[in-house]
Design a protein around this nucleic acid. Structure first.
Lengths: 333, 333
DNA sequence: CTGAAAGCGCTTACAG
DNA sequence: CTGAAAGCGCTTACAG
């Protein structure tokens, strides 16, 4: 098909072959409806023969829109966010954006370098996922005036806009669920950090408001793991009376608790019920299947992409978009 | 610190403030050793006052080096590659590259679009991870003459260069391990696709060469899952005599088999031994800890980054780099 | 060690 | 619907 081109073809090469100006070829790509059908056909032809692929760096420089989005995540190896990230990336790709992945590793020095990289590429937006950005980073992002979308949580004062859900409300709703199911002695395995704390406090508030006594609990460091669930189970078992429901900060934790409980000969949920968080696919695959809290990653991604689209059009967008959550009741609680 | 700049600062703004030409400021960034110390100080100062961040699109266009690398992966949600990807991204960041993540979802139409995007950004390299690229994509990559690194496996005829290990050899080595440990009736849970097949064949070859009879087995679709392990266990249990060792295509599978075995009252490894693949962190965390095959993701990433560095310098690089693998013996086999 | 100037490959008012 | 031309913000021989 394509000619054995020595150099990469440029817009002008296509233009010459199609016998039009390079402006018209540019329009063929960016405002296709404005070029005549016969002209378009000739251009299409030339593109195919040259194997032309537009240089997006040149395009971005000229148009001042990079069509690049930087997505910041703490890590991907054991991340609760992976599903949401995938769906977000899909949604953005569909709108012609390329996605730069930046892993912060909960390291502010690294974060700062990565922000500079993103700013250097003149990204059209920065998407922060479960990242607690330090003050310096927040300021830099603000001062460079780049669209910044904080996802997952819903901070009171977002850098720019936030798309997520209320962790506090997750805690409250989980307490209501536990109450309705008749559990009496919940025990919270909460994650360190603001979001984990918000869920814990939400649970405690709703639980005590409903007349329960303040639940016991333990805090574990992030990222939470299967092994932590194992460990935590020993603590739980030593309690007297033993809790009847373990509310975990992640499905990983829930899996560890559940496995340890089974090994100890306990029935789940009969002797001990377990609730996870994140609704990883393994939660559904486990036997007994794990009751968990689902965040609609696809919706989250779609909304983030939508915010971008509207911002690019100069429309006003709300500072907070709540995508909600849902408790998926399965066998473990 | 930084002035309230209306527009984003340009190289020229820095130059004016530092009282040098923009060429010198450019050199400050790209060949720092060549600019006088006193001049450098003035430039540094100006950069700080303006909050200047170089426009990498303009730089890339002018220099014909984008400092961008596209990493193609099938998915990230349940990927065996995540550790390697993290380490690769780290290694590349350290060398000043930005990483574009492209998820192919085992979809050739999508793959083709993503390749165009990467080519459009004029990436300095494309890194393929566990991707079976179709003919069209291979040709496009070749004809555009972009550095292409295939990782994970070691295909006989790579598009450009390959950094990985021999899946066949993993199979062989696993058979030797099983033999040495005295197992007699191995059963292979292999993944569909070339790499899974290579490992299976390697195992069978080494096993029969050593005088064993051809092991039984079953093939499962990728991505492999915990639930598949559950299912497969039923098949295994129905065998008479039952296998004494299950060789799994992933740690997820191994986890499922192991869990199902425990639920069925079997001792691991006493009644049934299990080997995984990938050495996910959960393999070490599980009780009994799972014997698995470790791929050094950090090494893989480092080598890929090294290939890039040398290619950028115009050096010749070998078409194949073998990073090897290692069987991590734990409790499950 | 530094500067003047051409050029990288596009986009986009402006004019027709 | 199309073209001529200026400009996006850098890099890099070339000259000194």
């Amino acid at each position: 098909m394509s000619e054995p081109n020595r150099k990469t073809a440029r817009l002008e090469d296509v233009a010459r072959l199609a016998q039009v100006s390079s402006a018209t070829v540019s329009r063929y790509f960016n405002s296709p409806d404005v070029v005549a059908e016969r002209t378009a056909k000739r251009i299409e032809d030339a593109i195919g023969r040259l194997g032309y692929v537009p240089n997006l760096m040149a395009g971005g420089l000229a148009s001042n829109r990079s069509k690049l989005v930087a997505v910041f995540v703490p890590e991907i190896a054991h991340s609760l966010f992976n599903d949401a990230i995938e769906e977000m990336v899909d949604g953005l790709s569909a709108q012609g954006y390329s996605v730069m992945l930046a892993m912060t590793r909960a390291n502010n020095a690294r974060l700062s370098k990565l922000v500079d990289m993103a700013l250097g590429r003149r990204v059209d937006a920065v998407i922060l996922t479960g990242v607690v950005s330090d003050r310096e980073t927040r300021d830099k992002l603000r001062s460079h005036n780049v669209t910044t979308i904080e996802t997952w949580g819903l901070p009171a004062d977002p850098i720019d806009v936030a798309v997520g859900f209320s962790h506090r409300e997750v805690g409250r709703e989980t307490a209501r669920f536990a109450r309705a199911k008749g559990y009496n002695r919940p025990f919270l395995v909460s994650a360190s950090g603001g979001r984990g704390e918000a869920r814990r406090i939400g649970f405690e508030d709703a639980w005590t408001d409903a007349g329960g006594t303040k639940p016991g609990g333990v805090e574990v460091s992030t990222p939470t793991s299967f092994a932590q669930g194992f460990e935590v189970f020993q603590t739980i078992r030593a309690q007297d009376p033993m809790p009847d429901l373990i509310v975990c900060a992640s499905d990983w934790l829930a899996l560890g608790v559940l496995f340890a409980a089974r090994e100890a000969g306990l029935q789940v949920p009969g002797d001990l019920a377990v609730i996870g968080f994140g609704n990883l696919s393994i939660a559904a695959e486990m036997r007994p299947a794990i009751t968990s809290v689902n965040i609609d990653g696809e919706l989250l991604g779609r909304q983030a992409a939508e915010v971008l689209r509207r911002k690019a059009l100069g429309e006003d967008v709300p500072r907070h978009t709540d995508v909600g959550f849902r408790i998926i009741e399965r066998d473990s609680a």
